[in-house]
Design a protein around this nucleic acid. Sequence first.
DNA 1: GCATAAAATCTCTTATTATGAGATTATGAA
DNA 2: TTCATAATCTCATAATAAGAGATTTTATGC
Lengths: 254, 254
Amino acid sequence: MKPTNSLERVLAVLEVFSEERLEWMPEDLMRELGYSRPTLYRYLKILKDAGFLMSSRNSGVTLGPKVVEMDYLTRRSDALVLHGVAHLKELTAAYSCTAMVLRWYGNKILCVVSESSAKNPISSYPRGRPMPLGRGAIARSIMAFLPRPQLLPLVERNLADLRSVGLGDDAEDVLKSLKKVRKAGFSVAYGEVTPGAVGIAAPIFDDRRYPIASVCVTISGSLVTGALIDQIGAEVRRVALQISADQAPAQPKN
Amino acid sequence: MKPTNSLERVLAVLEVFSEERLEWMPEDLMRELGYSRPTLYRYLKILKDAGFLMSSRNSGVTLGPKVVEMDYLTRRSDALVLHGVAHLKELTAAYSCTAMVLRWYGNKILCVVSESSAKNPISSYPRGRPMPLGRGAIARSIMAFLPRPQLLPLVERNLADLRSVGLGDDAEDVLKSLKKVRKAGFSVAYGEVTPGAVGIAAPIFDDRRYPIASVCVTISGSLVTGALIDQIGAEVRRVALQISADQAPAQPKN
DNA sequence: GCATAAAATCTCTTATTATGAGATTATGAA
DNA sequence: TTCATAATCTCATAATAAGAGATTTTATGC
């Protein structure tokens, strides 16, 4: 993970920005990244010229306008977004809930589209906000469909979280719980991410039937019963499979 | 503008993505950028690992999830966004219109927040969509407050567009028109960007009184008269100055 | 299943260039 | 002005990015 060449080192500058630290002073960047003064300023200049960073006077460096522009392009090119919205609207039309598509990436889950029909949407995951892998229906819906060799290290890395939500004491127990999810085709979580909210999620697959994302409905716990959850679960699953089919359309064979 | 070192060359890969071309095949990237095969693939690997790019099978390379995550951070760190929304809502509450804040960057203007109270919003500039400098009230509201040395080359570069909207035949004429805008404190455009839409814009300044962005109200031409435009213009100007003050707060002197 | 084609990665040498210590120059404050 | 801080420049040297070509991996044909 440590940058090994200068190309990765420039990009590493962009990695230090986080929700906790949205603004950096050059001095702090030098310390954090371990770069010499001229090198850091060289990097900053390049990144600023490209618009990835910007700096207003008497304040530090922040992410810049190029990021905003690229995100706009991403919204237009991401098949999950393009095909997702319409299906999410089906879900929000049928239930008073928040429905979203989330992409699995790195050791996290990232919301890419979100629609809501609830008066006071409970969950607070707008586009771009990452969430941890260990908790919640979303992560589980994806993990349940991972092949064992990929899954095991992931489970072990997030064991503490997984245990805390009652998925099992050791890795093998967790795997057993996930098998049940796989059988059902969707996963349910009661207040794991947001207290009082029920999450219902099903995976989106690529053309290899490998899970890459998830559709999730978040609904107030007071609005649902066991039977309704199963019904929503089936719906979510249907939508997820639909999006899977949309985003990897059968290639015309010459 | 041509990349001169390897750091700029990696970033140059991200520059080729545009609304016209959202997806690239490696082969085309080699040709477009003039990189050798191993070099290009090296770059792609680094950018993919960092999440800036992604590639699903049987399709080319597209911008990746890291971009989405960074945009989320940008929304949380950009003072123009943070302070802007509330003021835009004042405007959309008062008039049936679309109100936005746009940042000036490079040779373009970029929407960073947008609020709307119109039933059928006319203008189609969501967050992240760049627009050209030559046309529209926004660009003019910024240019009008640029110091001459910065302004002149800009005017010359965009002269064709500026002439086509009737700002003047040569650079000096255009400067004269812009002086009037400066005096009024806001600019108005009739259907320059979107037919039938009137744009009314005023600049946002940094702490040096240098224009860096603009507040713009877009409203249907059928809803406004000359007097109303002046009234909205004054409002827009007030809001723009308010945002200017907010985003560069007086530094507490120890 | 195997064969063929295409795509992606590796190897290794060479020339290129990124690096950092220290000096120097802007920039803002008093 | 003068001081303090922030940003940039110089330049010798070590570090490493680049590319030709071979090789491996992956996809798709039969």
